[in-house]
């Protein structure tokens, strides 16, 4: 790969690219303090821990309000965390200074959900791709231009797209540009936050394939976030299922998809309609809706929707523990 930004030494396979420990994010919804006011806290991420081994993809899956996107933004340091630790290549980035963080930025890149919103509408593709190169590559203007075109070709576009604005491109093309921008600094970790959900069905597969093949070519690690269990299973090695700000199940993608342990994962799995008119109706009865953990209850957040729940589940929080070697779940009933 002659075209890659190869200035940063890569870690050996088998080491951990990212280690997240007890990450918590609370939003205070009560506004300015006022005497006698009750504090309302939204616990968007309630103590999440996971590792991303070098060169692998972790899928974060869950429904709206489960905290998967907040987790991504915490790891990318787009939001300050309330507590917890994020070790990136052994360095605690939550504690990193502003100057240090700007150089770490080079290694953690992100692709967002809405491809139109993630590109500045007043900038041409050339300008969008130039900025990360200006900041991180130390290349001359001409070299940066060449590199930008190479990046576009890497994501399946070409030099013709350099002069375009986002509104002159389709959603899929914009998402490709966003991916090219994320590749520009030569990241070691790519966070893809719902990169498919704003795209047409026929385009989703293009972008999914692109991300998977880029990952194997360039050997970065990836956090792939989606509400779509099928897409996560396809893209990820390991998957973490989130509900109400916590990880309820974690394990290898294929096993988790085929034989879910946690009742919530089972419900999620059963809820996916199959593209087969002869498929059976889901055997699991769906009830309730995912909720945003505002002043969360003491027990398991899923208990109110769970067919297996007992009084124990409503009283205390089940810990995330190993149920089968390599697979963990947070449930008393598994």
């Amino acid at each position: 790969m002659s075209t890659m930004v190869a200035t940063r030494p890569r870690l050996e396979q088998g080491t951990t690219a990212l280690q997240v420990t007890e990450l918590v994010k609370e939003f205070n919804l009560s506004g300015l303090p006022w005497p006698g006011q009750r504090k309302t806290v939204l616990r968007a991420v309630g103590g999440v821990s996971f590792d991303v081994p070098q060169g692998t993809t972790l899928g974060l899956v869950g429904e709206s309000g489960c905290g998967k996107s907040t987790t991504a933004r915490l790891v990318a340091k787009l939001l300050p965390a309330t507590s917890g630790r994020v070790l990136f290549q052994g360095e605690d980035i939550l504690a990193a200074s502003g100057a240090r963080m700007r150089s770490v930025r080079q290694s953690i890149q992100m692709v967002f959900q809405d491809p139109f919103s993630s590109l500045n509408p007043r900038k041409r593709v050339a300008d969008i791709l130039d900025r990360p190169l200006v900041l991180h590559s130390g290349l001359s203007k001409r070299q940066r231009l060449e590199r930008s075109v190479e990046l576009l070709e890497t994501v399946g576009l070409n030099g013709d797209h350099m002069v375009r604005f986002s509104h002159e491109m389709s959603g899929g093309q914009c998402q490709r540009v966003a991916i090219a921008r994320a590749l520009a600094p030569g990241p070691a970790l790519l966070i893809a936050d719902e990169p498919l959900s704003a795209l047409d069905v026929s385009i989703q597969a293009q972008i999914l394939n692109l991300l998977v093949s880029l990952k194997s070519q360039r050997q970065f690690s990836m956090i792939f976030i989606s509400h779509d269990l099928r897409a996560v299973e396809y893209a990820a090695d390991e998957v973490a299922v989130m509900y109400a700000g916590r990880i309820v199940e974690q394990g290898p993608a294929v096993e988790t998809f085929n034989d879910p342990l946690h009742p919530y994962t089972q419900m999620l799995r059963a809820a996916i309609p199959e593209a087969n008119p002869r498929a059976d109706r889901p055997a699991i009865r769906m009830q309730g809706e995912p909720f945003t953990p505002i002043n969360p209850p003491p027990g398991c957040c899923f208990a109110s929707r769970c067919a297996l729940a007992t009084s124990e589940c409503h009283q205390s929080q089940p810990p995330l523990e190993v149920k089968i070697p390599g697979r963990t779940a947070a449930c008393f009933k598994v």
Binding site: A76, L78, I108, D114, S118, N120, P121, A178
Partner: peptide, 10 residues
């Protein structure tokens, strides 16, 4: 998101 993207880029 383009503002977040600019932050991520550094």
């Amino acid at each position: 998101d383009y503002v977040s993207a600019a932050q991520v880029v550094g």
